[in-house]
Simulated scan of single mutants.
Amino acid sequence: MRIWFNKTFSTISAVFNNLHLAYRPSAVTIICTHTHTTASAFLAADESYLEPSALVGQDYLDWCLEFCQRHRIDLFWPGKEAAFISLHQAQFHALGIQVLSVADYDTLSLLDNKAAFYAALDPDVAQTMEFIAVDNLYAFDHAVAELSRRHDSLCVKPSVSVFGLGFRVLDTRRDSITHLLKGVEYEIPLQELRQGMMNTRSFDTMLVMEHLDGHEWSVDCAGRHGKLLCAVQRRKSLLLGHGQEIDNNAEIAGMVERLTAHYYLNGLFNIQFKNGKDGPRLLEINPRPSGGFGMACLAGTNLAKLALQAFKGEKVSPPEIHYGLKIAEVNTPVVLRDKV
């Protein structure tokens, strides 16, 4: 089977490595494309090619269809333009090419916008932190006043972002020079943020939320059309550099199973939670393998193999998870490209 992964995050290498562990080279060939010649994922792929950097939407879809035919792709596992490709799966199927999408177009679009996602989520499926979406100073001030009545600490985050970009805890005591000199990270002075908003009539939607200050869980999952095949909970230490632990929190396990069924999730995906005064709360669903995917597979399961087995209609046996395992990742220096 020739499997193509188009441009995505560098952490896809862990998926490649686990597929190589599970299958003989003659059984699975991994093809990877990226817009940069130094993409680290190329090192773990069997074949690698450059893809055009400027194409999006229909133009990119047309290129993907042509690439699949030219390189005899059996299964397309999309990263870039995943939602748009999911919407047009029939065009690939007509050519005999299967597509492994995490969800349908509407769901993928919803997951990308946290304000819409949180607002639409049934609390019987999963609980989120309390939040208010804002896009101007007046709404921001109202949200801060309202949420401060019930929560000691608040935070903000753009409605659309990845890797936690833009997340900040609101600091009501210190200014930015103190943050700079003291090395304070992921916080922002409330009054200085307000001053910036005064200079901007409106801005992209952001969320004002209760700040959850407990443990964070990153749950790496394999599923098949709403059926959860396996989920590995990684509980992160509150102390930097102290690794993670394979956990088995029953409340989180229940939410993961319900979310998988509710959104009909498929393939490999990641769900994140954080603990607050009222218990674990859902942060987000990432419709892709996480940065810690390789660590999750140390718990006794090959999630990539499970996802592919289920896709192929093969029997999937529930693996035994090694709970309590302490894990971490060690960086390895590599040569991305010889000098030219």
Rank of each mutant, 00 (worst) to 15 (best):
A143R: 04
L121Y: 09
S237H: 11
V330K: 10
G294M: 02
A253V: 02
L240I: 15
E185T: 09
H88R: 12
I271G: 03
L87A: 14
K157L: 00
M1D: 08
L55S: 02
L111Q: 03
G164A: 12
I285E: 12
L259K: 03
H242L: 11
C32E: 13
T8Q: 08
S48H: 15
E47I: 07
M129P: 01
T128C: 11
I97C: 12
T128L: 02
G313M: 14
V334N: 05
L228T: 10
V162Q: 11
L303T: 09
L306P: 07
F311W: 15
G267H: 05
N286D: 14
A82V: 11
A126Y: 04
L147N: 02
L228G: 08
I3W: 08
E284A: 12
T260Y: 01
L100M: 13
T260M: 04
A82G: 09
N18R: 02
V169E: 14
L283T: 06
P287C: 13
D135N: 15
H262F: 07
G164S: 13
L61H: 00
R258E: 05
G166M: 05
V340F: 06
E216P: 01
R150K: 12
A304K: 09
E320N: 08
R224Y: 13
F9I: 10
D62M: 04
C155K: 00
L283I: 15
F131V: 00
K114L: 04
L207H: 01
G300S: 12
A119N: 12
L193C: 02
R281C: 14
A120F: 08
L308K: 10
R150L: 04
L228Q: 15
N248R: 11
S101E: 11
T33K: 00
L207K: 00
R281T: 11
D247C: 07
N286P: 11
K7G: 08
E216D: 11
A133G: 03
Q191H: 05
Y105N: 08
V256Y: 01
G183Y: 07
R281A: 15
I73P: 00
P280Y: 09
R150W: 03
G294E: 04
A14E: 14
P189W: 00
T37M: 01
L100Y: 06
T200D: 13
S237K: 13
E187T: 09
F131K: 00
T107V: 15
M295C: 07
Q89M: 15
L193A: 02
H215D: 11
Q233G: 08
G294K: 03
L190D: 00
W4E: 07
R201Q: 14
Q309C: 14
G267P: 04
V219S: 05
L282C: 10
E51D: 12
K305G: 05
N199C: 13
V28D: 12
F9D: 13
F163A: 15
L108G: 06
H151C: 00
I321N: 06
H20R: 13
V15E: 01
I252H: 03
L282T: 06
D106P: 02
A299Q: 04
T172L: 04
R24V: 03
F131P: 00
G267Q: 07
H242V: 06
V340C: 02
A328Q: 12
L259S: 03
L229F: 07
F16E: 01
S40F: 03
A94Y: 11
L121E: 09
M295E: 09
E66T: 09
G294L: 05
S26Y: 08
F84R: 12
V232T: 03
A139I: 00
I271T: 12
A126F: 07
S176T: 13
G324R: 09
